[in-house]
Design a protein around this nucleic acid. Sequence first.
DNA 1: GTCTATACCTCGATAGAC
DNA 2: GTCTATCGAGGTATAGAC
Lengths: 213, 213
Amino acid sequence: MSYPPGYRIERERSRVGKAGDAARAKAIQAAIELFSTSGYNKTSIAEVAIRTGLSQSGLLHHFPNKSALLSAVLEQREKEDTEFLFGDGDAPMGWVAFDSLVALVARNSTRPEWIGLFVRISAEATEPAHPAHEWMLNHYLSIRSWLGQAIEHGQKTGEILPDAPSEAIVRNTIAVLDGLQQQWVAEPHSMSMVAELRVYLHGLRATWGTPQR
Amino acid sequence: MSYPPGYRIERERSRVGKAGDAARAKAIQAAIELFSTSGYNKTSIAEVAIRTGLSQSGLLHHFPNKSALLSAVLEQREKEDTEFLFGDGDAPMGWVAFDSLVALVARNSTRPEWIGLFVRISAEATEPAHPAHEWMLNHYLSIRSWLGQAIEHGQKTGEILPDAPSEAIVRNTIAVLDGLQQQWVAEPHSMSMVAELRVYLHGLRATWGTPQR
DNA sequence: GTCTATACCTCGATAGAC
DNA sequence: GTCTATCGAGGTATAGAC
Protein backbone atom coordinates (compact mmCIF):
# COMPACT_ATOMS: atom_id res chain seq x y z
CA MET A 1 0.00 0.00 0.00
CA SER A 2 1.29 3.48 -0.82
CA TYR A 3 0.85 6.47 1.43
CA PRO A 4 -0.38 9.88 0.32
CA PRO A 5 2.46 12.38 0.35
CA GLY A 6 3.14 13.96 3.68
CA TYR A 7 1.24 11.28 5.46
CA ARG A 8 4.13 9.34 6.78
CA ILE A 9 5.88 10.15 10.02
CA GLU A 10 9.14 11.89 9.41
CA ARG A 11 11.60 11.15 12.11
CA GLU A 12 13.36 14.35 12.98
CA ARG A 13 17.06 14.11 13.08
CA SER A 14 18.10 13.54 16.64
CA ARG A 15 18.93 16.97 17.84
CA VAL A 16 22.16 17.67 19.58
CA GLY A 17 21.00 19.23 22.82
CA LYS A 18 22.21 22.66 21.89
CA ALA A 19 20.55 25.45 23.81
CA GLY A 20 18.53 28.22 22.21
CA ASP A 21 15.78 25.88 21.13
CA ALA A 22 13.16 27.92 22.90
CA ALA A 23 11.22 28.40 19.67
CA ARG A 24 11.02 24.69 19.19
CA ALA A 25 9.63 24.05 22.64
CA LYS A 26 7.16 26.88 22.25
CA ALA A 27 5.98 25.47 18.94
CA ILE A 28 5.38 22.08 20.48
CA GLN A 29 3.33 23.66 23.22
CA ALA A 30 1.28 25.59 20.67
CA ALA A 31 0.77 22.45 18.64
CA ILE A 32 -0.49 20.55 21.67
CA GLU A 33 -3.07 23.21 22.33
CA LEU A 34 -4.30 23.32 18.77
CA PHE A 35 -4.22 19.60 18.07
CA SER A 36 -6.13 18.98 21.27
CA THR A 37 -9.08 21.11 20.23
CA SER A 38 -9.05 20.87 16.45
CA GLY A 39 -7.24 17.62 15.82
CA TYR A 40 -4.25 17.14 13.58
CA ASN A 41 -5.99 17.21 10.22
CA LYS A 42 -7.85 20.42 10.84
CA THR A 43 -5.15 22.56 12.38
CA SER A 44 -2.85 24.35 10.01
CA ILE A 45 0.82 24.79 10.60
CA ALA A 46 0.21 28.48 9.95
CA GLU A 47 -1.95 28.65 13.08
CA VAL A 48 0.71 26.90 15.09
CA ALA A 49 3.25 29.35 13.73
CA ILE A 50 1.21 32.38 14.77
CA ARG A 51 0.75 31.02 18.29
CA THR A 52 4.49 30.40 18.39
CA GLY A 53 5.28 33.91 17.26
CA LEU A 54 6.77 32.83 13.94
CA SER A 55 5.81 32.89 10.31
CA GLN A 56 4.77 29.66 8.69
CA SER A 57 8.15 29.17 7.05
CA GLY A 58 9.87 30.19 10.23
CA LEU A 59 8.19 27.30 11.97
CA LEU A 60 9.05 24.91 9.16
CA HIS A 61 12.68 25.68 9.78
CA HIS A 62 12.41 23.77 13.04
CA PHE A 63 10.34 20.89 11.71
CA PRO A 64 10.74 19.49 8.22
CA ASN A 65 6.99 19.16 7.83
CA LYS A 66 3.69 18.97 9.62
CA SER A 67 3.91 15.34 10.64
CA ALA A 68 7.31 15.84 12.22
CA LEU A 69 5.62 18.37 14.48
CA LEU A 70 3.08 15.77 15.46
CA SER A 71 5.88 13.31 16.11
CA ALA A 72 7.52 15.70 18.51
CA VAL A 73 4.24 16.24 20.34
CA LEU A 74 3.54 12.53 20.73
CA GLU A 75 7.07 11.81 21.80
CA GLN A 76 6.79 14.33 24.59
CA ARG A 77 3.42 13.04 25.72
CA GLU A 78 4.64 9.48 25.82
CA LYS A 79 7.74 10.46 27.72
CA GLU A 80 5.93 12.40 30.42
CA ASP A 81 3.27 9.73 30.88
CA THR A 82 5.84 6.98 31.18
CA GLU A 83 7.91 8.93 33.66
CA PHE A 84 4.86 9.64 35.77
CA LEU A 85 3.69 6.03 35.79
CA PHE A 86 6.95 4.19 36.14
CA GLY A 87 9.43 6.83 37.27
CA ASP A 88 12.85 5.25 37.08
CA GLY A 89 11.75 2.17 38.97
CA ASP A 90 9.78 -0.90 37.99
CA ALA A 91 6.24 -0.87 36.66
CA PRO A 92 3.63 -1.34 39.41
CA MET A 93 2.04 -4.79 39.53
CA GLY A 94 -1.15 -6.32 40.90
CA TRP A 95 -3.96 -4.00 41.94
CA VAL A 96 -1.43 -1.27 42.51
CA ALA A 97 -1.06 -0.98 38.76
CA PHE A 98 -4.73 -0.12 38.50
CA ASP A 99 -4.43 2.38 41.32
CA SER A 100 -1.65 4.13 39.48
CA LEU A 101 -4.06 4.66 36.59
CA VAL A 102 -6.22 6.65 38.96
CA ALA A 103 -3.25 8.79 39.81
CA LEU A 104 -2.50 9.34 36.15
CA VAL A 105 -6.07 10.36 35.44
CA ALA A 106 -6.02 12.68 38.43
CA ARG A 107 -2.94 14.41 37.12
CA ASN A 108 -4.23 14.63 33.57
CA SER A 109 -7.45 16.17 34.83
CA THR A 110 -5.40 19.25 35.53
CA ARG A 111 -4.16 19.30 31.93
CA PRO A 112 -7.23 19.27 29.73
CA GLU A 113 -5.14 19.77 26.58
CA TRP A 114 -3.53 16.40 27.07
CA ILE A 115 -6.84 14.65 27.38
CA GLY A 116 -8.15 16.42 24.30
CA LEU A 117 -5.01 15.63 22.41
CA PHE A 118 -5.37 11.95 23.06
CA VAL A 119 -9.08 11.81 22.28
CA ARG A 120 -8.70 13.65 19.00
CA ILE A 121 -5.53 12.03 17.76
CA SER A 122 -6.40 8.47 18.62
CA ALA A 123 -9.69 8.76 16.74
CA GLU A 124 -7.99 10.23 13.68
CA ALA A 125 -5.20 7.70 13.89
CA THR A 126 -7.72 4.99 13.31
CA GLU A 127 -6.92 5.52 9.65
CA PRO A 128 -3.91 3.39 8.70
CA ALA A 129 -2.43 6.24 6.65
CA HIS A 130 -2.51 8.71 9.54
CA PRO A 131 0.93 9.77 10.75
CA ALA A 132 0.05 8.74 14.31
CA HIS A 133 -1.31 5.35 13.37
CA GLU A 134 1.71 3.35 14.40
CA TRP A 135 2.18 5.39 17.53
CA MET A 136 -1.35 4.58 18.57
CA LEU A 137 -0.97 0.86 17.96
CA ASN A 138 2.20 0.81 20.02
CA HIS A 139 0.55 2.86 22.74
CA TYR A 140 -2.27 0.36 23.11
CA LEU A 141 0.11 -2.55 22.88
CA SER A 142 2.27 -1.26 25.74
CA ILE A 143 -0.64 -0.64 28.05
CA ARG A 144 -2.15 -4.02 27.34
CA SER A 145 1.16 -5.71 27.95
CA TRP A 146 1.77 -3.90 31.21
CA LEU A 147 -1.72 -4.47 32.60
CA GLY A 148 -1.70 -8.07 31.46
CA GLN A 149 1.48 -8.67 33.40
CA ALA A 150 0.10 -6.81 36.37
CA ILE A 151 -2.84 -9.18 36.53
CA GLU A 152 -0.68 -12.25 36.07
CA HIS A 153 1.53 -11.03 38.88
CA GLY A 154 -1.47 -10.40 41.11
CA GLN A 155 -2.64 -13.93 40.46
CA LYS A 156 0.73 -15.29 41.51
CA THR A 157 0.76 -13.34 44.76
CA GLY A 158 -2.84 -14.36 45.33
CA GLU A 159 -4.52 -10.98 45.41
CA ILE A 160 -6.33 -11.66 42.12
CA LEU A 161 -8.45 -14.75 41.52
CA PRO A 162 -6.83 -17.37 39.29
CA ASP A 163 -9.85 -17.50 36.98
CA ALA A 164 -10.01 -13.75 36.39
CA PRO A 165 -10.31 -13.21 32.61
CA SER A 166 -7.17 -11.21 32.11
CA GLU A 167 -7.59 -10.02 28.56
CA ALA A 168 -11.15 -8.82 29.02
CA ILE A 169 -10.26 -6.96 32.20
CA VAL A 170 -7.36 -5.26 30.47
CA ARG A 171 -9.38 -4.21 27.45
CA ASN A 172 -12.33 -3.07 29.53
CA THR A 173 -10.10 -1.03 31.79
CA ILE A 174 -8.50 0.72 28.84
CA ALA A 175 -11.97 1.26 27.42
CA VAL A 176 -13.19 2.91 30.62
CA LEU A 177 -10.15 5.16 30.61
CA ASP A 178 -10.63 6.21 26.99
CA GLY A 179 -14.39 6.45 27.22
CA LEU A 180 -14.36 8.64 30.31
CA GLN A 181 -11.89 10.94 28.62
CA GLN A 182 -14.18 11.18 25.61
CA GLN A 183 -17.11 12.18 27.83
CA TRP A 184 -14.98 14.62 29.73
CA VAL A 185 -13.82 16.37 26.58
CA ALA A 186 -17.32 16.42 25.14
CA GLU A 187 -18.68 18.16 28.24
CA PRO A 188 -15.76 19.73 30.04
CA HIS A 189 -15.78 19.35 33.80
CA SER A 190 -19.18 17.67 33.78
CA MET A 191 -17.93 14.99 36.13
CA SER A 192 -14.95 13.65 38.00
CA MET A 193 -13.12 11.04 35.96
CA VAL A 194 -11.32 9.98 39.13
CA ALA A 195 -14.55 9.36 41.01
CA GLU A 196 -16.08 7.30 38.21
CA LEU A 197 -12.89 5.33 37.72
CA ARG A 198 -12.76 4.51 41.41
CA VAL A 199 -16.22 2.98 41.21
CA TYR A 200 -15.09 0.88 38.29
CA LEU A 201 -12.01 -0.33 40.15
CA HIS A 202 -14.08 -1.09 43.21
CA GLY A 203 -16.18 -3.38 41.05
CA LEU A 204 -13.07 -5.01 39.66
CA ARG A 205 -11.76 -5.84 43.11
CA ALA A 206 -15.14 -6.98 44.34
CA THR A 207 -15.48 -9.33 41.40
CA TRP A 208 -11.98 -10.63 40.77
CA GLY A 209 -10.07 -9.87 43.94
CA THR A 210 -9.54 -12.50 46.57
CA PRO A 211 -11.68 -11.87 49.67
CA GLN A 212 -9.99 -9.58 52.22
CA ARG A 213 -9.08 -11.22 55.45
CA MET B 1 -19.86 33.27 19.70
CA SER B 2 -19.90 33.21 15.95
CA TYR B 3 -19.47 30.11 13.85
CA PRO B 4 -17.20 29.79 10.86
CA PRO B 5 -19.22 29.71 7.66
CA GLY B 6 -20.60 26.33 6.74
CA TYR B 7 -20.07 25.04 10.22
CA ARG B 8 -23.59 25.11 11.41
CA ILE B 9 -26.00 22.28 10.85
CA GLU B 10 -28.38 23.12 8.07
CA ARG B 11 -31.67 21.44 8.57
CA GLU B 12 -32.77 20.09 5.28
CA ARG B 13 -36.23 21.03 4.30
CA SER B 14 -38.53 18.23 5.37
CA ARG B 15 -38.86 16.21 2.25
CA VAL B 16 -42.22 15.21 1.00
CA GLY B 17 -41.82 11.48 0.73
CA LYS B 18 -41.88 11.52 -3.05
CA ALA B 19 -40.37 8.43 -4.62
CA GLY B 20 -37.38 8.46 -6.95
CA ASP B 21 -35.00 9.53 -4.21
CA ALA B 22 -32.69 6.66 -4.89
CA ALA B 23 -29.78 9.01 -5.47
CA ARG B 24 -30.30 10.56 -2.08
CA ALA B 25 -30.27 7.23 -0.28
CA LYS B 26 -27.24 6.13 -2.21
CA ALA B 27 -25.42 9.32 -1.28
CA ILE B 28 -26.15 8.80 2.39
CA GLN B 29 -24.76 5.28 2.19
CA ALA B 30 -21.61 6.54 0.47
CA ALA B 31 -21.23 9.27 3.07
CA ILE B 32 -21.49 6.74 5.88
CA GLU B 33 -18.68 4.70 4.39
CA LEU B 34 -16.40 7.65 3.88
CA PHE B 35 -17.13 9.47 7.13
CA SER B 36 -16.52 6.23 9.01
CA THR B 37 -12.99 5.85 7.72
CA SER B 38 -11.87 9.42 7.09
CA GLY B 39 -14.09 11.40 9.39
CA TYR B 40 -16.23 14.35 8.42
CA ASN B 41 -13.57 17.02 8.14
CA LYS B 42 -11.32 15.05 5.88
CA THR B 43 -13.78 13.60 3.41
CA SER B 44 -14.71 15.80 0.51
CA ILE B 45 -18.18 15.97 -0.94
CA ALA B 46 -16.55 15.30 -4.28
CA GLU B 47 -15.51 11.86 -3.08
CA VAL B 48 -19.00 11.17 -1.82
CA ALA B 49 -20.33 12.29 -5.17
CA ILE B 50 -18.07 9.93 -7.11
CA ARG B 51 -19.09 6.99 -4.94
CA THR B 52 -22.71 7.96 -5.50
CA GLY B 53 -22.23 8.15 -9.24
CA LEU B 54 -22.83 11.87 -9.45
CA SER B 55 -20.78 14.96 -10.03
CA GLN B 56 -20.05 17.19 -7.07
CA SER B 57 -22.75 19.66 -8.05
CA GLY B 58 -25.11 16.84 -8.82
CA LEU B 59 -24.78 15.71 -5.22
CA LEU B 60 -25.23 19.23 -3.92
CA HIS B 61 -28.58 19.32 -5.63
CA HIS B 62 -29.82 16.84 -3.05
CA PHE B 63 -28.16 18.43 -0.05
CA PRO B 64 -27.75 22.18 0.34
CA ASN B 65 -24.24 21.71 1.72
CA LYS B 66 -21.83 19.31 3.35
CA SER B 67 -23.20 19.57 6.85
CA ALA B 68 -26.71 18.79 5.66
CA LEU B 69 -25.32 15.53 4.38
CA LEU B 70 -23.89 14.79 7.80
CA SER B 71 -27.25 15.63 9.35
CA ALA B 72 -28.97 13.09 7.16
CA VAL B 73 -26.40 10.44 8.08
CA LEU B 74 -26.75 11.04 11.81
CA GLU B 75 -30.51 11.11 11.61
CA GLN B 76 -30.55 7.71 10.01
CA ARG B 77 -28.12 6.23 12.48
CA GLU B 78 -30.08 7.52 15.42
CA LYS B 79 -33.33 6.22 13.98
CA GLU B 80 -32.03 2.71 13.36
CA ASP B 81 -30.38 2.45 16.75
CA THR B 82 -33.49 3.62 18.55
CA GLU B 83 -35.70 1.24 16.64
CA PHE B 84 -33.40 -1.65 17.42
CA LEU B 85 -33.18 -0.87 21.13
CA PHE B 86 -36.72 0.16 21.89
CA GLY B 87 -38.73 -1.10 18.93
CA ASP B 88 -42.16 0.38 19.26
CA GLY B 89 -42.48 -0.71 22.86
CA ASP B 90 -41.12 0.66 26.11
CA ALA B 91 -37.43 1.04 26.90
CA PRO B 92 -36.01 -1.96 28.77
CA MET B 93 -35.40 -1.42 32.48
CA GLY B 94 -33.22 -2.98 35.18
CA TRP B 95 -30.44 -5.31 34.14
CA VAL B 96 -32.32 -6.08 30.95
CA ALA B 97 -31.40 -2.61 29.76
CA PHE B 98 -27.74 -3.50 30.03
CA ASP B 99 -28.31 -6.80 28.27
CA SER B 100 -29.88 -4.97 25.38
CA LEU B 101 -26.64 -3.05 24.99
CA VAL B 102 -24.91 -6.35 24.37
CA ALA B 103 -27.43 -7.07 21.65
CA LEU B 104 -26.82 -3.68 20.09
CA VAL B 105 -23.08 -4.18 20.10
CA ALA B 106 -23.52 -7.64 18.61
CA ARG B 107 -25.51 -6.22 15.76
CA ASN B 108 -23.17 -3.32 15.16
CA SER B 109 -20.23 -5.71 15.06
CA THR B 110 -21.62 -6.81 11.73
CA ARG B 111 -21.63 -3.23 10.46
CA PRO B 112 -18.13 -1.88 10.97
CA GLU B 113 -18.93 1.36 9.16
CA TRP B 114 -21.35 2.32 11.88
CA ILE B 115 -18.82 1.77 14.60
CA GLY B 116 -16.22 3.75 12.68
CA LEU B 117 -18.72 6.49 12.01
CA PHE B 118 -19.44 6.92 15.66
CA VAL B 119 -15.81 6.80 16.77
CA ARG B 120 -14.67 9.36 14.23
CA ILE B 121 -17.60 11.74 14.45
CA SER B 122 -17.91 11.84 18.18
CA ALA B 123 -14.23 12.70 18.55
CA GLU B 124 -14.47 15.46 15.97
CA ALA B 125 -17.71 16.72 17.46
CA THR B 126 -15.85 17.48 20.64
CA GLU B 127 -15.29 20.88 19.08
CA PRO B 128 -18.27 23.14 19.89
CA ALA B 129 -18.31 24.50 16.34
CA HIS B 130 -18.55 21.08 14.74
CA PRO B 131 -21.85 20.46 12.94
CA ALA B 132 -22.42 17.28 14.96
CA HIS B 133 -21.66 18.84 18.32
CA GLU B 134 -25.25 19.24 19.45
CA TRP B 135 -26.18 15.84 18.11
CA MET B 136 -23.46 14.28 20.19
CA LEU B 137 -24.49 16.06 23.36
CA ASN B 138 -28.07 14.93 22.88
CA HIS B 139 -26.93 11.41 22.12
CA TYR B 140 -25.06 11.15 25.41
CA LEU B 141 -27.86 12.81 27.28
CA SER B 142 -30.44 10.29 26.05
CA ILE B 143 -28.34 7.27 26.91
CA ARG B 144 -27.54 8.60 30.34
CA SER B 145 -31.15 9.34 30.99
CA TRP B 146 -32.32 5.91 29.87
CA LEU B 147 -29.68 3.97 31.80
CA GLY B 148 -30.20 6.13 34.85
CA GLN B 149 -33.88 5.28 34.85
CA ALA B 150 -33.08 1.63 34.21
CA ILE B 151 -31.00 1.51 37.38
CA GLU B 152 -33.56 3.39 39.41
CA HIS B 153 -36.19 0.96 38.23
CA GLY B 154 -34.00 -2.01 39.10
CA GLN B 155 -33.54 -0.63 42.58
CA LYS B 156 -37.29 -0.37 43.02
CA THR B 157 -37.87 -3.95 41.91
CA GLY B 158 -35.01 -5.05 44.13
CA GLU B 159 -32.65 -6.53 41.54
CA ILE B 160 -30.13 -3.71 42.01
CA LEU B 161 -28.72 -2.74 45.39
CA PRO B 162 -30.13 0.50 46.80
CA ASP B 163 -26.69 1.98 47.35
CA ALA B 164 -25.46 1.36 43.80
CA PRO B 165 -23.85 4.59 42.56
CA SER B 166 -26.12 5.17 39.62
CA GLU B 167 -24.33 7.99 37.86
CA ALA B 168 -20.92 6.36 37.96
CA ILE B 169 -22.31 3.08 36.69
CA VAL B 170 -24.02 4.84 33.82
CA ARG B 171 -20.97 6.83 32.81
CA ASN B 172 -18.63 3.86 33.14
CA THR B 173 -20.92 1.69 31.07
CA ILE B 174 -21.05 4.25 28.29
CA ALA B 175 -17.29 4.57 28.56
CA VAL B 176 -16.77 0.83 28.15
CA LEU B 177 -19.03 0.89 25.11
CA ASP B 178 -17.22 3.79 23.48
CA GLY B 179 -13.77 2.62 24.48
CA LEU B 180 -14.23 -0.89 23.15
CA GLN B 181 -15.42 0.55 19.88
CA GLN B 182 -12.32 2.71 19.71
CA GLN B 183 -10.09 -0.32 20.18
CA TRP B 184 -12.10 -2.32 17.70
CA VAL B 185 -11.75 0.34 15.03
CA ALA B 186 -8.06 0.81 15.75
CA GLU B 187 -7.37 -2.90 15.29
CA PRO B 188 -10.24 -4.34 13.32
CA HIS B 189 -11.50 -7.69 14.50
CA SER B 190 -8.76 -7.99 17.11
CA MET B 191 -11.30 -9.03 19.72
CA SER B 192 -14.95 -9.64 20.43
CA MET B 193 -16.59 -6.54 21.81
CA VAL B 194 -19.49 -8.70 22.92
CA ALA B 195 -17.27 -11.02 24.94
CA GLU B 196 -15.47 -8.17 26.69
CA LEU B 197 -18.70 -6.36 27.39
CA ARG B 198 -20.18 -9.50 28.94
CA VAL B 199 -17.29 -9.67 31.38
CA TYR B 200 -17.92 -6.06 32.33
CA LEU B 201 -21.62 -6.68 32.88
CA HIS B 202 -20.86 -9.77 34.91
CA GLY B 203 -18.79 -7.59 37.21
CA LEU B 204 -21.59 -5.06 37.42
CA ARG B 205 -24.08 -7.68 38.54
CA ALA B 206 -21.63 -9.27 40.94
CA THR B 207 -20.94 -5.93 42.56
CA TRP B 208 -24.26 -4.13 42.52
CA GLY B 209 -26.86 -6.81 41.94
CA THR B 210 -28.80 -8.33 44.81
CA PRO B 211 -27.64 -11.88 45.58
CA GLN B 212 -29.44 -14.52 43.51
CA ARG B 213 -31.64 -16.80 45.48
C1' DG C 1 -31.96 16.53 -11.97
C1' DT C 2 -27.53 16.54 -13.60
C1' DC C 3 -23.66 18.55 -15.79
C1' DT C 4 -19.49 21.92 -16.82
C1' DA C 5 -17.22 25.86 -15.56
C1' DT C 6 -15.57 28.75 -12.37
C1' DA C 7 -14.96 31.87 -8.31
C1' DC C 8 -12.75 31.91 -4.20
C1' DC C 9 -10.49 30.13 -0.31
C1' DT C 10 -7.00 27.52 2.57
C1' DC C 11 -3.32 24.65 2.92
C1' DG C 12 1.58 22.48 2.73
C1' DA C 13 5.85 23.11 1.04
C1' DT C 14 9.75 25.38 -1.46
C1' DA C 15 12.86 29.19 -3.19
C1' DG C 16 15.54 32.67 -2.13
C1' DA C 17 16.62 37.27 0.17
C1' DC C 18 18.34 39.12 4.48
C1' DG D 1 17.16 31.57 11.93
C1' DT D 2 13.54 34.13 10.15
C1' DC D 3 11.14 36.43 6.60
C1' DT D 4 8.35 37.34 1.98
C1' DA D 5 6.74 35.48 -2.11
C1' DT D 6 4.88 32.02 -4.64
C1' DC D 7 3.53 27.52 -6.58
C1' DG D 8 0.36 23.80 -6.97
C1' DA D 9 -3.07 21.05 -5.02
C1' DG D 10 -7.46 20.42 -3.24
C1' DG D 11 -11.64 22.04 -1.02
C1' DT D 12 -16.79 24.32 -0.86
C1' DA D 13 -20.12 26.49 -3.09
C1' DT D 14 -22.50 28.97 -6.96
C1' DA D 15 -23.92 30.18 -11.86
C1' DG D 16 -25.91 28.76 -15.67
C1' DA D 17 -26.52 25.52 -19.70
C1' DC D 18 -28.93 21.33 -21.01
